[in-house]
Design a protein around this nucleic acid. Structure first.
Lengths: 128, 128
DNA sequence: TAAATATATGAGCAAGTATTCATATGAATA
DNA sequence: TATTCATATGAATACTTGCTCATATATTTA
């Protein structure tokens, strides 16, 4: 029963049932949120933005983003294990680049979203 | 100077400079990562998936997702303050629905991504 | 008006996380 | 071979966060 987790009565049983039938499976939803969780840190987001432009080594990323090599390396490990970046070793340097076509697309739409959002906000402000 | 945060020398000054010029501004990157951070929780992701299908009240969401009304309400507050859902009050019930066209699009691509990712993984496994 | 009901919210806690520091690894060079 | 340099990583820590519990608010109903 849902009763033991939801203190209130189920008001619209039909709605709940309909949505339940159309909901995606648990696992892909979990995977999607996991993907977004990785995107949801500004350091990693900046790294992805940088790597969208050009392949870079750890040291250059570190300099570009004004962060310690260690911090960058730790974050790269997270991006690597999420299969979002790939590493190419050349001598003692390691070059990183984006490993997926979707990433750029998702980021583009997200940028559109926040840009329009800001425009909307400024309109609201100018009206008040 | 970048030297004080990056222990190593800047190996490719030209690359760093090029990327620096093409990088998006700090603020929109922060906003984008903030957006993803909100998506990056499986409870909120499930709520968004549900609301993509149909407008729902708090109680129904609570029943659908097997979570307490309080937990759902707290998460709705986060989604609301990120302007991702809008609320419509009718009597003592509050109906929530998605407040943005981009959300669905972003989720669709993300679902494509994780689906292909899983396919790729199973290929890798079948080869080993 | 009093009770019941749907939702919102503050405080507290347990779990997770981003960074730093110290150090390991492995490749190039003197 | 010893040293230097780029990168990786474990441990510690400060900070964040999602949930629970208790309670407040607001609307309906008896």
């Amino acid at each position: 029963m849902e009763r033991d987790v939801c203190q209130c009565n189920v008001i619209h049983g039909d709605v709940v049932q309909r949505v339940q039938k159309q909901m995606p499976d648990e696992l892909p939803i979990y995977d999607v949120s996991e993907l977004f969780r990785v995107f949801g840190d500004s350091t990693r987001a900046r790294m992805i933005c940088a790597l969208r432009i050009e392949e870079m080594c750890v040291c250059d990323l570190s300099a570009l983003l004004h962060m310690t090599q260690s911090a960058i390396s730790h974050q790269l490990r997270i991006l690597r294990s999420a299969r979002l970046v790939k590493a190419r070793k050349q001598g003692r340097e390691v070059y990183y680049s984006l490993d997926d076509a979707h990433i750029g697309e998702i980021f583009s739409i997200a940028f559109d979203h926040v840009t329009e959002e800001r425009k909307g906000e400024s309109n609201v402000l100018s009206l008040s």
